[in-house]
């Protein structure tokens, strides 16, 4: 904690030359305007100050030109972004949430806690959690091999990673069905089992961890690993104690995205899953079913539950990764 205070103190000292120096009243006013301007938030404020300072001039003083600040969004940019996010994300989500409250909070609660709804949500979360964990391990391994190892056809493999994600999910489902379906050429029948769900979700979530870990691994400082080796650390120790902590935020981020994607997946599980209630019916299929039997309220309620799970997952990951990153990014 003392370190942090020191850091802040140093920051304050560095900033000191920027603060207005005490001078005559007039100079003080200009400095204050300067400060606001540097802030960039209230660009118009220096105008009245300047005029008040020199009331005698007949013609308005030529306004000092403001240099455009590099890399800062102008109000127009911020406006467009806000509007876009509202129309595309926030409004639909708000509409859904409102619809789910159609019969009040108790109605929403009853719809979510109905046994078949609970079962569907449970299957979804369980399978997605397995998928997320497998992805965290194997995605990292794939990224590692793609970055660190040289082998023929590496570029092809690298390009292939995105294919499951780019493929229409229903196509993915048919692909998997042709291999693991009733007429499986390898005698492996995963149709209508939870393992079928796992395989389908692993298929579509493959790129998430790989693609988030890859750039971090490319940027990683190899000298740090050499330093660990020179200190006597075995390759495994170096990986566990030096490399893994560096990759952790990326792995967590990728895993979170894979999990969030898995809980909402529909297309790839619709054929291989079999849609057996309480067994392989996932939340998205339950929602579809409720719509078909004209229970939009139930559908909306479970949708909101999924929304909440996804949101909490992403929030949790953000907190976790910012905690690990904070101390490293506090660069001097």
């Amino acid at each position: 904690m003392t370190a942090e205070t020191d850091q802040q103190r140093r920051g304050a000292a560095d900033a000191a030359p920027l603060s207005p120096r005490p001078g005559s009243d007039g100079a003080g006013a200009t400095d204050a305007a300067e400060l606001t301007r540097r802030d960039g938030t209230r660009p118009e404020d220096d105008r009245p100050v300047g005029h008040d300072g020199h009331p005698g001039h007949g013609s308005p003083e030529p306004r000092r030109r403001r240099l455009p600040r590099i890399g800062v969004a102008q109000p127009l940019g911020i406006g467009v972004v806000t509007l876009w996010l509202s129309v595309i994300v926030l409004l639909p989500l708000a509409a859904l949430t409102a619809a789910s409250f159609g019969e009040g909070l108790s109605g929403l609660w009853d719809a979510v806690t109905a046994p078949s709804a609970i079962a569907a949500l449970w299957v979804t979360v369980l399978v997605s959690a397995i998928v997320a964990v497998v992805n965290a391990v194997l995605g990292t391994l794939v990224a590692w091999v793609l970055v660190r190892d040289e082998f023929p056809g590496k570029r092809v493999v690298n390009a292939l990673i995105d294919l499951p994600f780019a493929l229409p999910t229903i196509v993915a489902s048919i692909v998997l069905l042709s291999l693991y379906g009733p007429n499986s050429p390898i005698g492996l029948q995963l149709n209508a089992t939870r393992w079928g769900l796992v395989v389908a979700l692993l298929f579509v979530t493959l790129p998430f961890v790989v693609r988030s870990v890859q750039p971090v691994l490319i940027e990683a400082d190899r000298e740090v690993e050499e330093a660990a080796a020179s200190l006597g650390a075995s390759n495994w120790t170096t990986f566990r104690r030096i490399v893994l902590p560096t990759l952790a935020p990326a792995i967590l981020g990728g895993t979170g995205l894979a999990f969030a994607r898995a809980i909402g997946e529909y297309g790839s599980v619709v054929l291989i899953g079999g849609d057996i209630p309480r067994e392989t019916q996932v939340a998205s299929q339950y929602i579809q079913q409720q719509i078909e039997i004209d229970r939009p309220l139930n559908a909306a309620a479970v949708s909101v539950a999924l929304l909440a799970i996804a949101f909490l997952t992403l929030l949790l990951l953000r907190v976790l990764s910012s905690r690990t990153q904070r101390r490293e990014e506090r660069d001097v």
Binding site: D221, V224, A227, A228, G232, A233, S234, I242, T324, E328
Partner: peptide, 29 residues
């Protein structure tokens, strides 16, 4: 391998273990 040569190596760009405190860095070996 470097692990068994009994060396200490210092790099131009420090190669600090960023996620460890100064104490843990020094204590690593």
């Amino acid at each position: 391998p470097p692990q068994r040569r009994g060396i200490g190596f210092v790099f131009q760009h420090y190669a600090a273990f960023k996620h460890m405190t100064v104490r843990d860095n020094v204590a690593f070996g």
